[in-house]
Amino acid sequence: MKVATLLALTILAFLVSLAAGKVWIGPADWFADTANGWIIAELRLPRAILGCSIGAVLGLSGAVLQGYLRNPLADPTVVGVSSSAALGGVSAIFLGLTSFPLGLFGCAMIGGALAMILLVLMTGRSGGPLGFILAGMVLSTLAGSLTAFLISIAPNPFAASEIIAWLMGALTDRGMEDVKHALPFMIIGSAILLGTGRGLDALTLGEDAARTLGFSTTRERWAIVAGVGLAVGASVAVSGVVGFVGLIVPHFMRSLVGERPSALLVPSALGGAILTLLADSLVRLTPGPGEVRLGIAMAILGAPFFFLLLTRIRMRAS
């Protein structure tokens, strides 16, 4: 019932995302053979599909990672896949590969894949959540520093500003080509992540109990690394880094559908889609010719929420 409501809201947010922008376009014009019809088909539809799918994989990845790490403060950035994929994208801009088809997308996916391989190598067969978080932090820091290094040695100010703008995360000027590249990875990654639900439930009781319930925590971790790597890697590749969705959405959903990790996955995906679609509609409404970058808008919205979350957890602990 709640899932059905969320699904309805997702569809509604999708439609809002089609209509909203510098020019409002009502449903009557969507299929018309006019300039407005063209805007819908060529600009807003791919943008809405990407907003929906990126939000969904970020919400889903956040819910899975929080379940696996048994920590409500985890999000897709902790495993280092986002920043590594971003480093890949930045390298493509730096090396001038963006003019090639799949240049930026391919480099970002390679960056994400390398992060996945390093994560598996660093955490190995054993090691609990702590090792996983530490490995992710090392990867994030390393990728972040290398990105900063590339910006600092950028050959000209234009390249530097292009890199910085891309890093901020946005869905501006994305087309159906981007959808075609990213969507398959996101679907495969999400399918893998949805399969981890039972193991996450078992982990509620701790790692020992989960293992005696027949779950391999190693296999669970590898599935999560693969799923997050594919889904979040692809999302970063088309939109840059959009933070906070994976952190905020599962937390909201917990108060709506309860805390059982597997029950949280689909609602978190839908909630992530709704939040991203609405936020992306909102940034288009900024006055003037430009628009606020989605990543920035999300961080400005998200940071205060993060503080609130921390103080509430602290209050419950005391």
Binding site: G67, A202, L203, T204, L205, G206, A209, L213, P261
Partner: peptide
């Protein structure tokens, strides 16, 4: 197990149901 406070605030029945996994 000895330790094992549940990580999430699930209902008593949800917790017991995990035994059926």
């Amino acid at each position: 197990p000895q330790d094992g406070e549940p990580a999430w605030n699930v209902s008593a029945m949800e917790l017991v149901s995990l035994g059926r996994l």
